[in-house]
């Protein structure tokens, strides 16, 4: 987890730096009065590296992936939630004794 986050932050920094260098490069081009045809190669390398690092972080940080098969053991539906919106209170459970000690102290 720690390494994953570190890699992610590094990737983010690289991307930010790539953006910053592109802005700088465009500023320089304006001074030299040349047309902007594309980012310089070092920015492209930086972008690719940043992308790769971010992708690695994205895969590493959330740790375990869930299965998408509906009948796989982890996410097999075993029961539905009790329909609590429709719950009623005069059920047979009221005949059971309850602990009188349970009180809200304020």
């Amino acid at each position: 987890m720690g390494i994953g986050v570190f890699v992610g932050v590094l990737g983010g920094l690289l991307l930010a730096h790539a953006a910053y260098s592109t802005v700088q490069y465009r500023g320089m081009l304006k001074i030299m009065e040349e047309e902007f045809s594309g980012p310089p190669p070092n920015v492209i390398i930086e972008l690719l590296l940043g992308l790769a690092l971010c992708a690695i972080a994205g895969l590493a940080v959330p740790e375990k992936f869930h299965s998408i098969l509906p009948y796989s053991e982890e996410n097999r539906v075993v029961s539905l939630p009790a329909n609590l919106d429709f719950m009623i209170f005069n059920h047979r459970g009221r005949a059971l004794p309850f602990d009188p000690e349970l009180k809200l102290k304020t």
Partner: peptide, 8 residues
């Protein structure tokens, strides 16, 4: 919905 893992 309650999955097997969540129930466990």
């Amino acid at each position: 919905m309650v999955g097997a893992a969540e129930e466990a």
